[in-house]
Design a protein around this nucleic acid. Structure first.
Lengths: 247, 247
DNA sequence: CGCACTGTTGATGTGCATCAAACAGCGTGG
DNA sequence: CCACGCTGTTTGATGCACATCAACAGTGCG
């Protein structure tokens, strides 16, 4: 399907090698034989119903999870019940990286729709990675990429106003859908306004108003959860002042 | 200086095995022999003058850096010049983890005072980690811990008011100094009010006012950059509603 | 169909940003 | 030695962006 696919994997049936999100998760850059070995880690994929938890804060780390189908939010909940959404995850993205630190999950992962994941047994993954340098390297990069992403979110929370945050959010989703092979201009939000708000450090009403602002500027057309981006460049300009740069 | 290639740990002069921050960085849990091998990665420690950059955004990743003496801030700068401080780093803490992702640094690291670091050549570290499972495990945990820390910051930015943020900041520093063997009630801020503000998503004036509030409540005594925590429990209660918990 | 959930829009309030001014510390040079 | 400028801190006055409160409309599911 893609040129990044390693050789002779077409007969593998159950895991990474015929997984549609192959190139986005751990196996990228591995040879067919190496993928085959990674394959052995994956006991069996499973489904998670909408609104069900894939894991919860404090659950012991058994596996990392690659999202195959559907989408998830990860969130922390304070003792007084306030939720902070820390991320949204679409197919091809990894869940559970924050659990490696203390060997227990540090957030909740909730399915935003009926979804399916590839569990990757972590202890076995670490063991296998000892013998597969490129697998280890990919895991390192995956962890580091999450750190970079979080730092961008801190920049957003610290320096952007509400409209800029919303624009940045939509652009980010757009890019990730694009990488996945979906339309970058036309997609569906699987999360509620309140969850977007929590993620961006805003109230749900502010999200609604931000949507209205972007619509009035002709940048997007958003009806309910259906998004059409009408002026990608305009959106980028809106966020432009806040991107990091050299020096 | 490329001095010794010693065989026994007690003879080592230049690296991990006699480093005062040994237990906090990568070598934790390694055997003496393993530390010796890690040792070979460290070409030579070096000093960074106050206000000088250890690295800058876009610099190629050569090494990770363990802070030995002094302190650093890491920050991203937007094209219109606004700075977002993404972290402060004291001795025993690692710098440069966000560079693994793209093999170039994603932020600036600036010394807050005259400081000293241990560079750890990353390519060699990865290679060595192939043969030292516990070293690889420590690196994984280090990366994951940074992710957990960033998620806590997102919670802070999304859900806490200015006084709570400041209290959380002081408590966090206090705990880290405590781990390092320094006083948890009595320490010096090496950064300016403006940098604290950037880190917490607030203006410097708001930091000053927050300090006044905490002082008026008898929680702390802060004069310039000298901090004395007078009511640790009170500070914790102030932040309490915002800590993550099970479920 | 009806009820619960989600989203939209308006009116009002407030926490923090912004603007402004004074002060403290500190090194420099007359 | 003090005068001076520079940087960093503190405190006050004012304004604004977003939160909060409230009413209502749209959506979907039992």
């Amino acid at each position: 399907m893609l040129e990044t696919r390693p050789v002779q994997v077409q007969h593998l049936k159950a895991a990474c090698s015929n997984c549609s999100v192959l190139e986005l998760c751990l196996p990228i850059g591995l040879t067919g034989q190496e993928v085959e070995r990674l394959n052995t880690l994956i006991v069996q994929r499973f489904k998670v119903k909408k609104d069900a938890a894939l894991y919860r804060t404090g659950d012991p780390l058994r596996s990392l999870y690659a999202v195959r189908i559907g989408s998830f939010k990860t969130s922390m909940v304070s003792v007084d019940g306030r939720e902070q959404v820390t991320g949204f995850h679409i197919p091809g993205e990894m869940l559970g990286l924050d659990a490696i630190s203390a060997e227990e999950h540090a957030c909740n992962a909730i399915a935003l729709e009926d979804s399916e994941v590839c569990p990757i047994h972590f202890a076995q993954l670490e063991k296998l990675a000892q013998n597969l340098p490129s697998l280890q390297h990919n895991l390192n990069r995956l962890l580091s990429r999450e750190i970079v992403r979080d730092h961008s979110m801190l920049m957003l929370m610290g320096n952007m106003n509400s409209d800029e945050r919303l624009a940045a959010f939509l652009l980010n989703l757009s890019q990730r859908f694009s990488i996945r092979g979906y339309s970058s201009r036309d997609f569906v939000l699987k999360m509620r306004r309140e969850e977007i708000g929590s993620y961006l450090g805003l109230r749900l009403e502010t999200i609604c108003r931000g949507i209205a602002h972007l619509r009035n500027q002709g940048l997007v057309e958003i009806a309910g959860r259906d998004v059409k981006i009408q002026n990608m460049e305009g959106l980028k300009q809106l966020v432009a002042g806040c991107n990091r740069h050299q020096s």
